[in-house]
Nucleic acid binder design. Structure first.
Lengths: 188, 188
DNA sequence: ATCGTTGGCTAACGCCATTAGCTTTCAGCT
DNA sequence: AGCTGAAAGCTAATGGCGTTAGCCAACGAT
């Protein structure tokens, strides 16, 4: 019996892929093992539990989103940066709904938790977007929360199929970006 | 052995209460039964499955949110209506996080599904809020999606404990309402 | 070549959702 | 009041899933 050569990252990647395909809630240890050509208990040599695995998926998603944002925001500012961040986030959630949904119960266990680090990097990117607007220092936190809530909410509802189809969702998204852009510009 | 006098509504109410206390994901048929002073299999005389129970919880939550919104919006318009709706939604989610999270995988099974009906009533209330602003007819759908995404996202993140504590979340919420109000007013 | 570590396996436990089938209660009818 | 049939509760059993224990083979370092 040859070895499969697994490690935590491989298990996490397999589970993340599965989550995108069938939904995070339907990801079972047995299915992950099957995808890796391994028996279920073998997974426990690499991850501590299913909860641990979910947290690793969340950390992976946050890193990927953070990277994507960093790339997309290169050399952009103002409305361009806002639009780039918005599209990047939406695209990621649409393409990786399972991974992304793992990030919802955000409970970093400490400052060195990968989830906390990844989350902070995403927030840094949002802060970079806001830097392109003249926003009062005291209001930046509020504006950050605005962006987070709006993008997260939109993406979540869209991924859940919550928008009726008769009106174009893409158009709404553009309208929404414009709404925020204008609002942030007139923010003292 | 006397009868417990259960019905679908009682089972749903018990499960909803439990969900608010321990989180929807931790609600098990056994715990619901225990709370009702009944053995687990007895629940199946009133609900078809755990999935069915979750859908009933979602429908309950939507009805409750719809009622609360309707009450809160009585005789209000413009900024007052917007603020009332926002606070009502936020308060509900904070007080009933378990119930509310049951509404996330919105998949109404047909036009007569209680989930569809409840959801439509909530959307009607949001439409009523927008009626207080002069918004171009073609843009109302976009504005509806803005409100949904923003409120849903904010409430979800807050319920998950996603906002750091050093800056007041209440203040952010007020700032956010103001941001939307000003934006909607300058919307042609 | 060997040795300790590591990664895989089988077997087993316990919890949970769900079903089958029995018994008892109770509302409505006579 | 007595009867009767449907509905509500129960016990027992099944199958799936997460997880642990303990065994054995593979492999890198000496």
């Amino acid at each position: 019996m040859p070895r499969a050569g697994l490690d935590p990252a491989a298990v996490t990647a397999a589970a993340a892929g599965l989550a995108d395909e069938i939904g995070l809630a339907n990801v079972t240890m047995g299915l992950v093992a099957e995808r890796l050509g391994v028996r279920t208990p073998s997974l426990y040599k690499h991850v501590a539990s299913q909860a641990d695995l979910n947290r690793r998926i969340a950390a992976l998603a946050l890193v990927e989103v953070g990277d994507a944002l960093r790339d997309a925001l290169q050399g952009k500012s103002g409305r361009d940066a806002l639009a780039a961040a918005a599209h990047t986030l939406r695209t990621y959630v649409v393409q990786h709904p399972g991974r992304y949904s793992a990030t919802l119960p955000l409970n970093p266990q400490g400052p060195d938790d990968p989830i906390a680090i990844g989350g902070a990097r995403v927030l840094d990117s949002l802060a970079a977007v806001l830097a392109g607007y003249d926003i009062d220092k005291a209001d930046t936190v509020h504006a950050m929360r605005l962006l987070r809530s709006l993008f997260h909410g939109f993406a979540t509802i869209e991924a859940a199929g919550g928008f009726e189809m008769d009106t174009d969702v893409d158009k709404s998204f553009e309208w929404l970006i414009d709404f925020v852009d204008r609002g942030l510009k007139t923010e003292a």
